[in-house]
Computed example of a mutant assay.
Amino acid sequence: MELPLVVGVDGSDSSLLAVDWAVDEAARQGLPLRLVHASLWERYERVQPSFSTDRPAGRVMAQDIVASCVERTQLRHPEVKVSSDVLAADAVSTLLHAGSEAFALVTGARGRGEVAGLLLGSVSLTVAARAMCPVIVVRGEERKVRGSVGRVVVGVGDATGGTGAVRFAAREAEARGCALTAVRAWRNPVPEPGSAPAESGPGHPGLAAGAAGAPEEQVSATLDDALREVVREHPEVEVSRRAVEGPAHRVLLEASADADLIVVGALRRHGHFGLQLGRVAHALLHHSLCPVAVVPHRV
């Protein structure tokens, strides 16, 4: 049985945009959709007397939010199978638990009550930094959410950590019938006067131009290695490669301007329970011009 695509809903405009993205994704991938609303209303409202038929206001609001989101999905894609849950728990714990049995988690960039001007809501950031399944944070222009650009971009990091992200991106490109662009950033620092020449070698962060094996050639080889299997598994996807000199977070932020979705990997270290989110993913979640998918890799 296919795992569901889970989307967190709270009634905010950002959440409704996430619902639209999620139901489109469920239709593309042939997945069931599960809407989850988490609220701690039980902690803040007194228990109703046993003889009262009134429902707590918090429960009424939560159920109304979910019902309106279910209706929204059915109007947009009536063929998608939709289920919903209203849970009396905090949003982060609820979504992380739901993510243990999900194809992916989808959230908006900001929730209800977030501070005005906040770049990314705390729930979305924490879920993206801790979930063990892919997390998509829906942000950017509405046309990007609709998928009108026709391109998925994946950031290619080291060979091990980037495999899951590349596979996820290729599957997305195939489902959308669009192009896939793999981007790898590289740096060529200028050595200080009197210092030894920078070492060269595959994966070295400070490759020196003119050293044995030009850095562009080594980066190109890394891209070819990362894409070899997905090109074979998804022959119908148009794949392009881009090696760009510059800081990875800046290179990928620029790439997000011409993408419907940008995909990056994130390491999950066994036994570590804090936030596990690298600088590149963190920057994209706050500033990307299109939706961002963070794909975890456990080590």
Rank of each mutant, 00 (worst) to 15 (best):
S195C: 07
A18Q: 06
H272A: 12
S14V: 05
S15M: 03
W186T: 04
G113Y: 02
L118T: 12
C178E: 06
P191S: 10
M61N: 11
S124R: 10
I262K: 07
A116C: 06
P49E: 02
G213Y: 00
Q276Y: 03
L180T: 08
T181Q: 14
A179K: 10
G108T: 03
A159L: 11
T73S: 14
R228F: 11
R228P: 09
H287P: 03
R269I: 06
T160E: 12
R55W: 00
L35Y: 01
R43Y: 01
H286K: 13
G11V: 07
G161Q: 09
A98N: 04
G274F: 08
V292D: 05
S93K: 15
H234W: 06
R269Y: 04
D54G: 12
S84A: 15
D90L: 09
A221T: 06
R298N: 13
V9D: 01
D260V: 05
G161H: 10
S100C: 11
F168R: 11
D13W: 04
H286S: 03
A243I: 00
Q74L: 12
S124C: 04
A212I: 04
V7F: 06
A170S: 00
L120R: 05
A209I: 07
A185I: 01
F51I: 01
P291C: 04
M1R: 12
W186A: 05
H234P: 07
M61F: 15
A62Y: 05
A266H: 09
V138M: 07
Q29G: 09
L285P: 15
E101D: 14
R146F: 00
D10F: 00
R112T: 15
L277M: 07
T181P: 02
S122H: 06
G213T: 07
A257I: 04
M132G: 15
S52C: 02
V135L: 10
A88D: 12
R55N: 13
D13P: 09
P193D: 02
R184I: 05
V231I: 05
S12G: 04
S220K: 11
A102L: 05
G210Y: 02
A248E: 00
A214G: 04
V115I: 11
V9I: 03
A259H: 10
G206S: 14
R46P: 10
S256D: 00
D158Q: 11
L87T: 09
G108I: 02
G162W: 01
R59E: 01
R143A: 12
V264W: 05
H282I: 00
G121V: 01
R241E: 08
P197T: 02
E79C: 03
R184G: 09
C69H: 08
F51N: 13
L75S: 12
L87D: 13
R55S: 15
D54N: 13
S50M: 12
M61G: 08
D85W: 08
H97N: 13
R112N: 01
E233T: 14
L261T: 02
G111T: 03
E45V: 08
E217R: 10
T160Q: 11
A221E: 13
V149A: 09
G111Q: 06
R151H: 14
N188K: 02
S50P: 14
A226P: 01
P191L: 06
V66Q: 02
C290S: 08
G201T: 12
R72D: 08
S122Y: 03
A212D: 15
P296H: 07
P78K: 10
V244F: 05
V166C: 07
V60D: 11
L87W: 09
L3D: 06
V82L: 05
S148C: 14
L118K: 13
V153L: 03
